[in-house]
């Protein structure tokens, strides 16, 4: 007997089931198809304005920084200003995401912009978020041809552009958006939920930012939430 059969046999023996019981199969089938939500905390169900305010608070509580930018065309100059303020080199690496490609990068002549995955030499990466969760200040980024996962982890500084209208209250809203975009029961290779910059407290419980991932996480919320 294969290991698979042995394991299934042992599980079923312990549970006292055959695996063919129709009511059990229906219970499982229904749950997978309907994916009912559990309890969502009240703080995950705020109206748009309060939601954005909570998101901001939670990003900062997680040691991230956040800027609100009314006009999407101002993003390149806001990035340039951020780099200058932190004494960072005027070069960013970004994915091919159309929302990033459409930005007027040419307005910032001194800013060098390259496109593609990271090989570990880039200091600053710019990504576009799929969405965000206000209740914990969490960004959601999904992998795909235009969104390399390496950009989220290798560079020292990670700048994430986020549409204000994509800030959800809770995780449940984003799972639903993933289903709408990728199809029921289908997922991109990688979905990253990111809450603040990388950290470790493994040496004497002293919390230090910048363990293996970015030391700095900066969120740029673009436009209005409604």
């Amino acid at each position: 007997m294969s290991a698979r059969d042995l394991i299934f046999g042992s599980i079923r023996r312990s549970l006292g089931v055959s695996g063919k019981e129709a009511p059990r199969r229906k219970t499982v089938g229904d749950r997978l198809a309907q994916h009912p939500a559990g309890l969502v905390p009240a703080r995950g169900q705020l109206a748009a304005k309060e939601r954005l305010a909570l998101f901001r608070t939670m990003v900062e509580a997680a040691s991230g920084s956040i800027d609100e930018i009314a006009d999407v065309a101002d993003v390149p100059s806001a990035i340039a200003a951020f780099l200058r303020a932190h004494n960072l080199p005027m070069a960013v690496r970004r994915g091919g995401d159309p929302r990033l490609a459409a930005l007027p990068w040419e307005r910032e002549r001194t800013l060098e912009v390259s496109v593609g995955r990271s090989d570990g030499k880039d200091v600053v990466a710019v990504s576009h978020a799929f969405g965000a969760v206000a209740e914990s200040g969490t960004l959601m980024l999904v992998s795909g041809p235009d969104n390399p996962t390496t950009l989220n982890f290798l560079p020292d500084t990670h700048v994430v552009v986020l549409d204000a209208k994509d800030v959800a209250g809770d995780y449940e809203t984003l799972w639903q958006r993933l289903r709408e975009k990728f199809g029921d029961r289908l997922m991109p290779r990688t979905v990253n939920l990111i809450t603040g910059p990388s950290r470790s407290a493994d040496i004497e419980q002293t919390l230090i930012l910048g363990a293996h991932g970015p030391r700095r996480l900066h969120v740029m919320v673009v436009g209005k939430s409604e």
């Binding site: 997922m187 991109p188 990111i194």
Partner: peptide, 24 residues
């Protein structure tokens, strides 16, 4: 675990890289 509202990285992985993915 640590008293954080959420850990820094929660990563969902499904299958290998897709044909047009630049990494993974």
């Amino acid at each position: 675990a640590t008293g954080q509202d959420m850990s820094v990285y929660t990563t969902l992985s499904t299958g290998p890289r897709r044909p047009d993915d630049p990494d993974g």
